[in-house]
Each structure stands twice: as structure tokens, then as C-alpha cells.
Amino acid sequence: STGEEYIAVGDFTAQQVGDLTFKKGEILLVIEKKPDGWWIAKDAKGNEGLVPRTYLEPYS
């Protein structure tokens, strides 16, 4: 699937089932941008889950 690459600007630990845990500096592939501010993203290992958009910045 296609998506946009974003870099994590902080650590995030999953708070509920379906969230994706990530560390600062990780590159995430954003698959869907939901209007509530929680985006669906995939990490380098292929894990998929919800992430808070405030922790992400476009990666170029």
C-alpha cells in the first residue's frame, strides 16, 4: 500500500489496543489520516496501528 513517510518527534506508548508504539526518530508510513487526529500508520517492521498526528512531522 502507498502512504506518506513521517518521522516521529517523540516517543509514544500505546494506550489502548490498536495503538502503535514508536520511538522518537522512527520513520512511519501513514496510510490514512483520520479527522480526529489519530492516523493509521505502519512501522518498519510492518506493524500497523493508530498514532497521534501531533507526534509526527513530514519526512523528506
Rank of each mutant, 00 (worst) to 15 (best):
D19P: 11
E57Y: 01
Q16H: 11
D43V: 01
P58Q: 10
T21C: 07
I31Y: 07
D11P: 11
G18V: 09
K45A: 07
G25I: 00
L29G: 11
K24N: 14
L29S: 13
K24M: 05
I27G: 06
T13Y: 05
G10N: 12
G10K: 14
K33E: 09
R53H: 12
E26A: 12
A8P: 01
A14I: 03
D19G: 15
I7M: 14
G18D: 11
K33H: 09
K45G: 13
K42T: 10
T21Q: 09
V9N: 05
K42H: 09
T54M: 13
Q16R: 14
G46L: 07
L56P: 00
P52M: 15
V30R: 01
K34D: 06
P35E: 09
E48D: 13
K45Q: 09
Y6A: 04
Y59D: 14
F22C: 12
P58W: 05
G18L: 08
D43H: 06
W39K: 01
S1G: 03
I40L: 09
P58S: 09
L29M: 12
K23N: 14
S60P: 10
A41L: 08
K23Q: 09
S60G: 04
G46V: 01
T54L: 07
W39N: 02
F12N: 12
G37C: 11
E5S: 13
D36Y: 12
K34T: 08
I27P: 06
P52N: 15
P35W: 04
D36S: 12
Y55E: 14
F22L: 11
V9W: 01
N47I: 12
S1T: 11
I27N: 05
K34L: 07
S1E: 12
G46K: 13
F12M: 09
G10P: 00
P52V: 07
S1V: 06
L28S: 00
K33N: 09
Q16W: 02
N47Q: 08
E48A: 03
G37T: 10
D19E: 15
N47E: 10
V9Q: 08
E4C: 07
A44S: 12
G3M: 15
Y6S: 02
S60C: 10
T54G: 15
K23T: 12
G37S: 10
P52F: 13
Y55A: 12
A8Q: 01
K33R: 09
A14D: 05
G10W: 04
S1N: 14
E57G: 03
E4L: 10
Q15E: 09
V30K: 01
G37Y: 08
P35K: 13
I7K: 07
A44K: 08
W38V: 15
G49D: 00
L56E: 00
G18I: 10
Y59H: 11
F12S: 14
P52D: 15
Y6Q: 02
R53T: 11
D11N: 09
Y59L: 09
G25P: 00
T54S: 14
G3S: 14
R53I: 11
K33M: 10
L28F: 14
K24I: 02
Y55D: 12
G49L: 02
A41W: 00
P52A: 14
V51D: 00
E57N: 03
P35T: 10
G37V: 12
K23C: 12
K24F: 03
T21N: 15
T13A: 03
G18W: 05
E4W: 06
F12L: 11
I7E: 02
F22E: 00
T21L: 05
V30Q: 01
T54H: 13
L56M: 12
V51Y: 00
P35N: 15
G18Y: 05
P58K: 06
L28A: 03
G10S: 08
K33P: 04
I31W: 07
E48M: 11
A14H: 13
K33Y: 03
Y55T: 14
E26Y: 07
D43Q: 05
D43S: 10
D11Q: 07
G46E: 14
L28Y: 08
G46C: 05
F22M: 13
Q16Y: 02
G10V: 09
K34Y: 03
Y59A: 07
I7V: 04
L29T: 12
W38F: 15
D11E: 08
I7F: 05
E57C: 02
F22W: 03
G3L: 14
E57F: 01
W38T: 15
T21K: 10
G46T: 06
E32M: 11
Y59V: 13
V30Y: 01
W38C: 14
E4T: 11
Y59I: 10
E4R: 07
Q16C: 04
E32G: 10
G3W: 13
T2F: 09
L56I: 12
S1K: 14
G18A: 13
I27L: 06
G18K: 14
G49W: 01
A8M: 05
E4A: 05
A14N: 10
G46S: 11
I40D: 10
V30H: 00
I27A: 05
K42G: 05
E48Q: 14
D19L: 13
D36F: 06
P58Y: 05
L56D: 00
E32N: 07
D11V: 02
D19I: 15
L29D: 13
Y6M: 08
Q15K: 08
G49C: 02
V17Y: 03
E48V: 12
V17G: 11
Y59G: 12
K23F: 05
E5H: 02
L56T: 03
L50P: 13
K24W: 03
E4F: 13
K33Q: 11
Y59S: 14
Y6K: 01
V17T: 05
I31T: 08
T13N: 05
D43G: 08
G10E: 03
L28C: 03
R53L: 05
N47T: 11
S1I: 11
G25A: 04
W39I: 06
E26N: 07
L20T: 01
T2L: 07
D43L: 02
T2Y: 02
T2N: 02
G49M: 02
L28M: 10
N47S: 13
G49F: 02
G49E: 00
E57L: 02
G46R: 08
Y55W: 12
E57Q: 02
P52K: 15
D11L: 02
P35F: 04
I31M: 11
E4K: 12
T54W: 03
A14M: 08
G18S: 10
L20P: 03
G49I: 01
T21V: 10
K34F: 06
K34G: 06
V51C: 08
D19Y: 14
L28D: 00
K42L: 06
K45F: 08
E32H: 08
W39M: 15
K34W: 04
E32A: 09
G10R: 14
K34V: 06
G25Q: 10
D11S: 06
V30F: 01
P52H: 14
L56C: 06
T21I: 08
T2R: 07
E48R: 07
D11W: 02
N47Y: 04
V9M: 12
P35V: 11
E5G: 03
I27M: 06
R53Y: 04
G18E: 11
S60F: 11
G10L: 12
G49P: 00
E26W: 12
D19T: 15
W39P: 01
P52G: 15
E26F: 04
V9D: 04
S60N: 06
I27E: 07
G49T: 01
I27V: 06
W39V: 14
L56R: 00
F12D: 01
E5D: 05
Q15F: 07
P52E: 15
T13C: 04
K33G: 03
G49Q: 01
Y6C: 03
T54Q: 14
L50W: 03
G37W: 01
G3V: 12
K45D: 07
I7G: 02
S60Q: 11
G10Q: 15
I7R: 08
T21F: 09
A8G: 05
E57M: 02
E57I: 02
E4M: 13
P58H: 06
A44R: 07
L28T: 01
P35L: 10
V30W: 00
T2E: 10
E26P: 00
D11R: 05
K33T: 07
G3R: 13
D19K: 14
L20C: 05
A14T: 13
K45C: 05
K42D: 03
A14V: 08
T13I: 07
L20K: 03
Y55L: 15
Y6P: 00
T54V: 13
L56H: 00
G46D: 07
G10H: 03
Y59C: 11
S1Y: 13
I31P: 02
R53V: 06
P58A: 14
T2D: 01
E26M: 08
